[in-house]
Amino acid sequence: MNENRQQKIIDLQQRLATAGVVFGVRNSLKQPSASSEIHHDFPPDFPVDLVQMAVLNEISTTTYGDISSYGFALMILRQIAMAQDEKFLWCMAGRQPLESGQLFALGLSAIGIDPAKIIQLEVRRTIDVLWAMEEAARSGALKAVVGIIDNLTFTQSRRLSLAAARGQTPVFMLRPYNNDGASTAFSRWRLSSRPGQVNIYNPRTPSGIQGPGRAAFEVELYQCRDGRRGKWVCHYENQKHQTAHRLSVVATTGNRTPVSHFPQRAKKRNR
């Protein structure tokens, strides 16, 4: 009897394992990753393994016109596609390029992403973007696939999930602020910009406005298949010895108001 039970457990475990392969979980967890480097760029309790898995992820924003989701996706991509010839696909459809603008080569290099790594796709219909994303994810030729998608049906998201698992490629959907409806995304993130820090070394404007420092944002993992949840307030860190304004996410130490005597001194110097 005891042996029987043991056998059953092994059986079940195997079945779970195969199921895991279908959803792309188990296989992708085994993938070797430069996790030490990734930890370096994220807050300590951030689920780094989640964004590297070959699954469908959904990233939405809370307000219209907020591109913090772009920043978050690019930051993840920078970590995933570190090597020289590793490329990723960035898809836009319809009015998207007019709504939030096109990716800017100089801006990308400013945050440490080589523009040559990004293959961009710009088509009129969302349906073409979905087709291209599925094709790209299934081929496994890219390190990651990103698409900015207004609306999609449950079946479409299911296809994307399966393609991600088949091609062992992480897929990210950037959704608009009023994103709702069911999808088979493995993890769902919500991004929102937060007032950034000030750069006290910048001269104030005549009206007393200070210069922008590190940009801040809030990232919330509000749904995940494996039950994890979390909320982090982060900012883009200027690393030492690196080009300025480089992208890496570190938890804020608190929204301190700038120390008062610094700007005053700066003011005096200006006079």
């Binding site: 096109q102 710009e122 073409d128």
Partner: peptide, 26 residues
């Protein structure tokens, strides 16, 4: 990998058109 990538690009280009897929350079 590069072979797989160029094949993917071919499929995308042949269906969506040559102008739909591009890279940017400074």
């Amino acid at each position: 990998q590069t072979g797989k990538l160029s094949e993917l690009i071919d499929r995308l280009v042949n269906r969506l058109g040559k102008d739909a897929i591009f890279q940017v350079e400074g």
